[in-house]
């Protein structure tokens, strides 16, 4: 069993890093097509080796450090970001028989990792001692704290449905959430919760239309204005890792995770375990890629919100909507049972 665990861990990290690296290329290519350009096409066939070239460039550039900084914190911040981005992916169930994390707290671990993410960005903003960075860090902190509530409420509705459909399972385990969706994906059973979760997830990853944190026109680069070379690269990679993780989590919580459509009709549960694993991982990967595409698509289609609009959406729209959805769902489940 430990060998399976280490293989899964290694495979997951390898796929995760590759996806994050190629998400940068996908972003540039898709934005190019949306804006009627060609995009990067010089490095390798069709520009496919571009991420490699980017990494090499970032490694060999000078890591400039402003003199008036908290040196230790400035180096620790990007490391923290990458570590937390990698930590969140551990709770994903990959197939009925394949998962890394089997703790009883499941989702609470995810919430803990997400809530620690604020430190990375706000410390980066503070440690460089630049006004732009500080504003970016503060904006990010306020935004993440505001939208964490809506995210939590949407997750609560998922837990409620899970414990209703599978009363004997521990609803905090991500595996139970996916298994409960054998009776219907939660995007159909809980559409408002899905909507709230997706909007909050976009805000939590600091991506457009919620990218006030690094609004180029106002803050240069936001919290990473004073970062260069591989330390900037760490923030860059962490951002795309967060995007991939958020996509995989949307797929797991609302789109049936590793479950494919017509699962019982195809008769997957009768297959050998290896093929069941392949089937599950493939569906999860497909759904993750689709949601990563949606993330990029939205970024290059929608304009950015103003900061007061951002706060109003978080506190006056998403939060009441999440509470109303949770209460309604609880009432309906009470009536059915």
């Amino acid at each position: 069993m430990p060998i399976v665990f280490w293989l899964t861990l290694g495979g997951l990290l390898a796929v995760f890093f590759t996806l994050a690296a190629y998400a940068t290329l996908a972003e540039r290519k898709i934005s190019a097509y949306i804006q009627d350009r060609v995009g990067p096409n010089r490095v390798g066939p069709k520009g496919l080796l571009q991420p490699l070239a980017d990494v090499l460039k970032l490694v060999f550039k000078e890591a400039f450090q402003p003199s008036s900084t908290y040196r230790l914190l400035q180096i620790a911040a990007p490391v923290l970001m990458v570590a937390l981005a990698m930590g969140a992916v551990a709770i994903l169930p990959l197939s009925p028989h394949l998962r890394l994390f089997d703790g009883s707290i499941g989702l609470l671990y995810l919430l803990g990792v997400l809530s620690m993410g604020v430190y990375g960005i706000s410390l980066a903003g503070w440690a460089t001692g630049s006004k732009y960075s500080l504003l970016g860090g503060l904006r990010s902190g306020a935004q993440m704290i505001s939208y964490e509530l809506a995210l939590g409420l949407a997750l609560l509705s998922v837990l409620l449905l899970t414990s209703f459909l599978l009363p004997d399972a521990n609803p905090l385990a991500p595996q139970a959430i996916v298994e409960a969706q054998r009776q219907g994906w939660f995007v159909f059973l809980n559409p408002i919760g899905f909507l709230v979760y997706v909007v909050a997830a976009f805000a939590e990853t600091n991506r457009a239309p919620f990218d006030l944190v690094e609004a180029e026109q106002e803050l240069v680069g936001g919290y990473h204005t004073e970062y260069s070379a591989i330390r900037f690269g760490a923030f860059f990679v962490a951002e795309y890792m967060n995007m991939i993780t958020a996509s995989a989590l949307i797929a797991t919580f609302f789109w049936g995770g590793y479950l494919g459509p017509f699962e019982s009709w195809v008769g997957v549960s009768g297959w050998p375990i290896v093929w069941q694993n392949v089937w599950g991982v493939s569906w999860l990967l497909l759904k993750t890629l689709f949601w990563a595409f949606v993330f990029i698509w939205v970024r290059w289609t929608l304009p950015r919100f103003r900061y007061d609009q951002l706060m109003r959406i978080g506190w006056k729209v998403l939060l009441p909507l999440g509470i109303a959805n949770l209460a309604t769902l609880a009432g309906i489940l009470l009536l059915i049972s």
Partner: peptide
């Protein structure tokens, strides 16, 4: 485990 997770989320995270 629950108390530990809440310790991280509430105290360290919020």
């Amino acid at each position: 485990e629950y108390v530990g997770a809440i310790q991280v989320i509430v105290y360290a995270g919020a």
